[in-house]
């Protein structure tokens, strides 16, 4: 029974997939559509995977969406100024890392609650994105063709083209998975999440680890912002804004699958896929886009609520 409780969300996910497969027999479970879904969700996935790092410590990063926007416009502004593609990408990632480390310092050294600290930097990064882009969408000839071509390209394996964005998201998944599940760094993040004070007394360098984790989350957000800019061949100072809440929702959906209620990155992957499959399938079923949003919110609440109830009843 313990196992079934833990897999309730996974069963729900399988149910959703099965329902769509029945309702959309010709189009849902096709290779093309599944690859489309993987590509559509890749940006959210990268944000959610890196969000898992800070959530493992019981922290939050609300600034990831505006960091994604800032990274996108940073790269685009570099391109506009005539710099080559790699320089633009490096600059954007550097901004992401620096912004993330700033979050970490505010939380770990200054001692501001993560919610407040990252709410503050959310506003700062968003303002910076407007400054860098002059409030405009950077597009057209300012975006180099190779940069935009990345999101349209892929790697052909056995006659199927795996989208580059999907592979990028998988790469980030592997890095975060190894970090969290197979290194001392990851184990210590979970120790901090369990009891930060106990971890500190046990000799875990809590402050430094927190700063590092926030730095990596910022880096992930910047990578997602670059993927987004490539996907839409343009950069706009608000385009990443929607990523933050969905990323947190995905991690929470994943947490319902963990016995201890801990965020694990492979569970986050399931959370991300649930959101993506719902968006894709409900669109194909021609469900009104506003009703779709109500439905997705209700499903998140149902899953998290059911898991919480399960934990209470199971005690």
């Amino acid at each position: 029974m313990r196992r079934l409780r833990r897999y309730g969300t996974l069963i729900g996910f399988a149910g959703i997939v099965a329902a769509f497969a029945v309702l959309l027999p010709d189009t849902f479970l096709t290779t093309r559509n599944l690859l489309n879904i993987s590509q559509q969700v890749s940006m959210l996935a990268v944000v959610a995977f890196s969000m898992t790092l800070v959530m493992a410590m019981g922290d939050f990063d609300l600034s990831v969406g505006s960091m994604a926007s800032l990274a996108g416009v940073t790269a685009a502004a570099m391109f506009q100024a005539g710099h080559p593609v790699p320089a633009g990408i490096l600059a954007a990632l550097a901004v992401g890392l620096a912004g993330g480390l700033l979050n970490g310092v505010l939380v770990a050294w200054v001692g501001i609650l993560p919610f407040v600290a990252t709410l503050g930097t959310l506003t700062m990064f968003s303002g910076a994105a407007f400054v860098v882009s002059d409030g405009r969408t950077i597009f057209g000839r300012d975006i180099p063709e190779p940069f935009a071509a990345f999101a349209r390209g892929g790697v052909e394996v056995a006659g199927v083209t795996l989208p580059a964005l999907t592979l990028a998201a998988l790469g980030v998944f592997l890095v975060v998975w190894v970090l969290l599940e197979h290194t001392a760094f990851g184990r210590r993040l979970y120790a901090i999440g369990g009891n930060a004070e106990a971890a500190r007394l046990a000799g875990v360098p809590v402050a430094r680890l927190r700063i590092a984790a926030f730095g990596l989350t910022g880096l992930g957000a910047a990578a997602a912002g670059l993927m987004y800019a490539s996907r839409v061949a343009s950069a706009n100072p608000t385009q990443g804004a929607g990523l933050m809440l969905d990323a947190i929702a995905a991690v929470f959906l994943g947490m319902t699958m963990s016995e201890e209620g801990e965020p694990r990155v492979h569970a986050t992957l399931v959370g991300v896929l649930i959101l993506a499959v719902l968006a894709n399938g409900l669109t194909q079923l021609r469900v009104d886009s506003y009703i779709r949003e109500i439905l997705v919110g209700a499903i998140i609440l149902a899953a998290v609520g059911a898991a919480g109830l399960g934990r209470i009843l199971g005690r």
């Binding site: 079934l4 409780r5 309730g8 729900g12 149902a302 059911a306 109830l309 399960g310 009843l313």
Partner: peptide, 23 residues
């Protein structure tokens, strides 16, 4: 350990299915 978790987990799945079929 009771079956509470199983009930709760499954009810979420059932709710999703019912909703989709209604749609």
């Amino acid at each position: 350990m009771t079956t509470g978790g199983f009930r709760a987990g499954n009810s979420a799945g059932a709710m999703l299915l019912a909703g989709l079929l209604a749609l």
